[in-house]
Write a protein that binds this DNA or RNA. Structure first.
Lengths: 189, 189, 189, 189
DNA sequence: CATGAATGAGAATTCATTCAT
DNA sequence: AATGAATGAATTCTCATTCAT
């Protein structure tokens, strides 16, 4: 499965693109999500222009960075949607999603943002929403999920929980705790 | 001869300080939480130096801005802690806190941040935490609140919920919904 | 074996050249006379390299763009030079030239510039000057034209009038007015 | 007579402003009218920010540069308007204006531009126009000036003549010649 | 010949902070 | 205390030109 509709034609260009993406990913992973294009260019050992060619805007880079984890997330969600045990599947999906978001702030940015530039990424998000919607529907049928919860709410709340965890240095135990609070909160009162 | 070290601020200085704070508050309220000291000085009609004198760092200004709402919040919490109906009191307190946070991003910043510069603000936060702790204790006794929840978690989660709401344009109804999810999630499973 | 040095351009190359010229012309006509080779290449759907191959410098492109109108201008001038009514012929020629210059800033650039890269364009300019010279000579003989006016002055003054017109949005009426001022000014006092 | 409504309050700031203006003037005089703010800052030995403080935009700097010559021009025009020999006065004024324009491209820019940022400069231009208008009126009365000529036309045509002269290296004799052509052209046919 | 990716100097602009007045 | 001019590093972004494919 390919993530990009518009791959660069030349092999070296593609390599460059991936290299820049890798550097950017590392930057974000190291806690710097400012995504300064000239810094990334310097670290990647390419000219600024090269970065601008591949990623005309900060948002484009951000979405490109989010594409991979979002793709995996969508896939996971689609698999989960076919699971017989929809409750366990949803919980596991949320756990997985939270961990990805915690590791990758770009994913959060894309999950939260209303407007996406790259239609391919938009599509991935829609796939995730669709699968999530199915899981929520199942939960609502069995009265395990509040009727007023929509996929966008799940996305927002997951990012909110991630935000809460990032306020202070957090442990995996903490993440589990907050996730339990979220899932418990999603059940009808 | 009057005491120098403990002299009250000169009246005009105090007035300046309040004016700058007012302008900064208005800026934040208008959605710009960048707190650029130059801009604030210009809007306040004072020199940058004056702003720097009163607020040596951005963080100092931010805490000064948060002081008032935080003070009210602490007071509310202390009152709530004396309420016979601790469940209702907690819920009402959370509702109030969330609305304040939504209206004032500085409050969120202070509630989340680990390190505060101004001891007076630190003290307010501690008062809030203490009262919150009492409310939580009462809830735990009656098995309405998870044992593993601490005041800092409540603070973080409230900011998380605020973050989730701010991801998209939100309605009061939405805020209520997310708050219900939070409070429901806080009950032991 | 065919001659290499004097081989006609390959058909596709010639087509490319014309296409690039067309795009460039359209750009200039639309008011953008920056002649950015990258932009033109993109609009023409060819690589920058292709544009550079055909037009090594901005000046080369500019002269190529001016060639056609300059050629027509030269032809007109030569025809005018044979006209019995040299006064009317000159006036009509100036009117025509001004309108061309107004519509095509490249023509002005070539008419004004002292140095031309392309000998062919240089030649066209010389043809124009020669014919113009004849018209002026006739005028001087009949004392309708100042003795100190040379073809280069006419060229410069025409561009000056065009410049004056372009300072503000101008009407055809305006153009006629300024042209009258120019032609009246050329008569001996 | 002061040229600026908004003089910097501090003496050193005013000195800085003048110094920057001087450098910019020298740049323009040396034929570089790109007015690059960072280059000027470097040459003036001040920080870029200083230049930006005094001249927020290139246009602001340009107008500031034009203020002085424009002021003198306006004054000259006003004096000329009171001259009994309005014909000679107008000719002398045009001669003076052309020479100033030739020496200072900023003046041309301001005389041509429809929109001015600085109201003080706008005012100077209006003063010039008004005085010019009086001179033209006198000329029209005596049938020495075409009825359809307005101050804006004179400004444009002067800039046009300057443009024509600058096309090639010009001599004072050339300037006189073109000016004669212009003044002769302005008389009714 | 054609391509278009890559380059990187350089221009424009912002802003936190200092310090002379 | 107050002022606000000055600083200049930092950042964003553009574009003419080269060169590997």
């Amino acid at each position: 499965m390919t993530l990009r509709g518009e791959m660069p034609r030349r092999a070296d260009a593609a390599r460059n693109r991936e290299h820049v993406l890798g550097i950017a990913r590392a930057q974000v992973a190291s806690g710097d999500d400012s995504l300064q294009l000239n810094t990334i260019a310097r670290l990647a050992g390419v000219g600024v222009g090269t970065v601008y060619r591949h990623f005309p805007t900060r948002q484009a880079l951000l979405e490109a960075l989010a594409a991979e984890p979002l793709s995996e997330l969508a896939e996971r969600a689609e698999t989960a949607a076919t699971d017989a045990d929809s409750e366990a599947a949803l919980h596991e999906l949320l756990r997985y999603a939270l961990n990805r978001i915690l590791r990758d702030s770009c994913l959060a940015a894309v999950l939260e943002s209303a407007e996406l530039e790259d239609p391919a990424v938009e599509k991935l998000k829609n796939r995730f929403d669709k699968a999530l919607s199915a899981l929520l529907r199942a939960g609502k049928r069995e009265n395990r999920i509040r009727k007023d919860v929509r996929p966008a709410d799940i996305r927002s709340l997951l990012c909110g929980v991630a935000h809460a965890l990032q306020a202070s240095p957090h442990t995996p135990k903490h993440a589990r705790q907050y996730l339990q609070i979220l899932t418990a909160g999603l059940t009808p009162s």
